[in-house]
């Protein structure tokens, strides 16, 4: 029997979305995004096992690369934001509004 990774992926993504919506710390929110990305990777792994195909596994590797790049850019942004605003609370950083 093959394990149903799709269910795990759903739980993981829900947790990541909930954290992203609830928490106000930008650093935590960035971590939640990483979690969501990994949830997508798990879904891809599920279809690779189910259909016995290699292509989704290649896509997972690709996700890792994207997540690494994104983390690098995101952390760099966070560093600059914290320097400028002296805080990482999202509610206090709202300069760009109509």
């Amino acid at each position: 029997m093959k394990p149903n990774l799709l269910f795990l992926s759903f739980i993981l993504f829900s947790i990541s979305a909930a954290i992203f919506l609830i928490r106000r710390n930008l650093f935590i929110m960035l971590m939640a995004l990483e979690l969501g990305l990994n949830a997508a990777g798990l879904a891809a792994a599920h279809f690779a096992l189910k259909n016995s195909k290699g292509e989704p596994l290649a896509w997972i590797l690709f996700f890792f690369a994207v997540a690494a790049a994104e983390a690098a850019i995101g952390l760099a942004l966070l560093m600059n934001i914290s320097k400028k605003f002296k805080t990482l609370n999202a509610d206090e950083i709202k300069e760009l509004k109509g």
């Binding site: 992203f20 919506l21 929110m29 509610d91 950083i93 760009l96 509004k97 109509g98």
Partner: peptide
């Protein structure tokens, strides 16, 4: 009226996205 949507609140944007 539409400019109220763009309130600068990140979690509000995130909610809309989700």
């Amino acid at each position: 009226y539409f400019r109220n949507i763009q309130n600068g609140n990140l979690s509000f944007y995130a909610l809309i996205l989700v």
